[in-house]
Amino acid sequence: LYHVLGLDKNATSDDIKKSYRKLALKYHPDKNPDNPEAADKFKEINNAHAILTDATKRNIYD
């Protein structure tokens, strides 16, 4: 999941948040209406963010 956000395992919560915002804006379906690959990437980014920002889920993942 870290690679989805372009981060390593030592990433801080701020790093995760910044990377998520940058990538979410880039791949958001509203910005890429005719690109199904961007929509899939956006879903991956959201999933990675949801797990890595939840301390319990992140510990389980790590």
Score class of each variant (00 low, 15 high):
Tyr2Ile: 00
Asp15Ser: 05
Pro33Thr: 11
Ala48Glu: 05
Asn59Lys: 11
Ala24Pro: 04
Asp8Gln: 13
Pro29Tyr: 05
Glu37Lys: 13
Ile51Lys: 14
Ser19Thr: 11
Leu23Arg: 03
Pro33Met: 03
Leu25Ser: 05
Lys22Arg: 13
Ala38Trp: 07
Val4Gly: 02
Asp62Leu: 03
Ile45Thr: 09
His28Asp: 14
Ser19Val: 09
Thr53Glu: 07
Ser13Thr: 14
Pro33Ser: 11
Asp40His: 15
Arg58Cys: 04
Asp14Met: 05
Pro33His: 00
Asp8Ala: 08
Pro29Asn: 07
Lys43His: 15
His3Tyr: 03
Ile16Arg: 02
Asp30Glu: 13
Asp30Val: 09
Ala50Ile: 06
Ala55Asn: 11
Lys22Gln: 15
Asp54Cys: 03
Leu7Ile: 03
Ala24Trp: 15
Arg58Ile: 03
Asp8Val: 01
Lys31Leu: 04
His3Asn: 07
Asp15Pro: 01
Ala50Leu: 05
Leu25Asp: 15
Lys22Ser: 15
Asn10Cys: 07
Ala50Tyr: 02
Ser19Gln: 14
Pro29His: 03
Asn46Pro: 01
Lys22Val: 15
Tyr20Cys: 09
Ile60Asp: 15
Ser13Trp: 06
Asp30Lys: 14
Asp14Leu: 08
Lys18Thr: 13
Thr12Cys: 08
Lys9His: 06
Leu23Ser: 04
Leu1Glu: 10
Asn10Thr: 12
Asn10Glu: 06
Ala50Arg: 13
Lys57Thr: 04
Lys41Thr: 09
Asp54Ala: 09
Ile16Asp: 02
Asp34Trp: 00
Pro29Leu: 03
Ile45Leu: 13
Thr12Lys: 04
Lys26Thr: 09
Asp8Gly: 04
Lys9Glu: 13
Glu37Arg: 11
Leu23Ile: 01
Leu1Ile: 11
Ala24Gln: 11
His3Thr: 13
Asn35Pro: 04
Ile45Ala: 09
Asp54Leu: 02
Phe42Asn: 08
Tyr2Ala: 03
Tyr2Pro: 02
Asp34His: 05
Ala50His: 08
Ala50Val: 09
Arg58Tyr: 02
Asp34Gly: 14
Lys18Asp: 12
Thr56Val: 05
Tyr61Gln: 14
His28Ser: 15
Ala50Cys: 01
Ile45Gly: 08
Leu1Arg: 01
Ser13Cys: 09
Lys17Pro: 00
His28Lys: 14
His28Arg: 09
Tyr61Phe: 07
Tyr61Ser: 15
Lys9Gly: 09
Lys31Met: 03
Asp54Gly: 07
Ala50Trp: 01
Asn32Phe: 08
Lys17Phe: 03
Asp15Ala: 12
Glu37Ser: 13
Asp34Gln: 09
Lys9Ala: 14
Leu1Tyr: 13
Tyr27Glu: 12
Leu52Met: 05
Asp62Met: 01
Lys26Glu: 14
Ser13Met: 13
Thr53Ala: 11
Lys22Pro: 08
Ile45Asn: 05
Tyr27Arg: 02
Asp34Cys: 01
Ala11Asp: 03
Asp14Ala: 10
Glu37Tyr: 08
Asp30Thr: 14
Ile45Cys: 04
Ala55Gly: 10
Lys26Ile: 15
Ile45His: 01
His3Arg: 09
Asn46Asp: 02
Glu44Ile: 01
Arg58Gly: 09
Ala24Asn: 09
Leu23Trp: 04
Ala50Asn: 12
Arg58His: 07
Ile60Tyr: 12
Ala48Val: 01
Leu7Pro: 08
Gly6Thr: 00
Ser19Ala: 13
Ala48Leu: 00
Ser13Phe: 07
Asp62Ile: 01
Ala48Pro: 05
Asn35Leu: 09
Thr56Tyr: 04
Asp15Val: 02
Leu1Trp: 06
Ala48Phe: 00
Tyr20Arg: 10
Tyr2Glu: 11
Ala55Met: 08
Lys18Asn: 06
Pro29Trp: 01
Ile16Cys: 04
Pro33Val: 08
Ala11Lys: 02
Leu1Thr: 02
Val4His: 05
Leu25Asn: 12
Lys18Ala: 14
Lys9Tyr: 10
Lys41His: 15
Lys17Asp: 03
Asn59Pro: 14
His49Arg: 13
Lys9Pro: 08
Thr56Asp: 11
Asp62Val: 01
Ile16Tyr: 01
Ser13Glu: 13
Pro33Tyr: 06
His3Pro: 02
Ile51Asp: 14
Asn32Gly: 04
Tyr61His: 14
Tyr20Glu: 15
Thr53Val: 09
Ala48Trp: 00
Ser19Lys: 05
Asn46Thr: 15
Asp54Phe: 00
Leu52Pro: 07
Pro29Val: 05
Lys22Cys: 09
Ile45Met: 04
Asn46His: 12
Asp8Arg: 04
Leu52Gln: 02
Val4Ile: 12
Ile60Val: 15
Thr53Met: 10
Thr56Met: 06
Lys57Glu: 13
Ile60His: 10
Arg58Gln: 10
Val4Phe: 05
Pro33Trp: 00
Asp8Ser: 05
Pro29Thr: 07
Ala55Phe: 06
Leu23His: 00
Asn59Arg: 11
Leu52Tyr: 03
Asn32Tyr: 01
Ala11Pro: 03
Glu44Phe: 01
Ala48Cys: 00
Lys9Val: 13
Tyr27Val: 02
Ala48Lys: 01
Gly6Glu: 00
Ala55Glu: 12
Ala38Phe: 09
Ser13Asp: 14
Lys26Val: 10
His3Cys: 10
Asp54Asn: 14
Ala48Gln: 00
Lys18Ile: 13
Lys9Arg: 11
Glu44Ser: 07
Asp40Trp: 14
Ala38Leu: 08
Lys57Arg: 12
Asp62Glu: 06
Leu25Lys: 10
Val4Met: 12
Asp15Trp: 07
Ser13Ile: 14
Arg58Met: 03
Ala48Ile: 01
Ile51Pro: 10
Ala55Tyr: 04
Tyr27Thr: 10
Asp54Arg: 05
Ser19Arg: 06
Lys26Asn: 06
Asp14Cys: 02
Leu25Ala: 13
His3Asp: 03
Ala24Arg: 12
Asn59His: 11
Gly6Asp: 12
Asp54Ser: 15
Asn32Leu: 01
Ile45Asp: 06
Leu23Gln: 06
Ile45Pro: 04
Lys43Asn: 08
Tyr20Ala: 14
Ala50Ser: 14
Lys57Asn: 02
Ile16Gln: 04
Asp15Met: 06
Leu23Thr: 02
Leu5Glu: 10
Asn59Gly: 14
Ser13Gln: 05
Ala38Tyr: 10
His3Met: 10
Ser19Cys: 11
Lys31Gly: 06
Tyr20Ile: 02
Ala38Gln: 05
Thr56Trp: 03
Ser19Met: 13
Tyr20Asp: 12
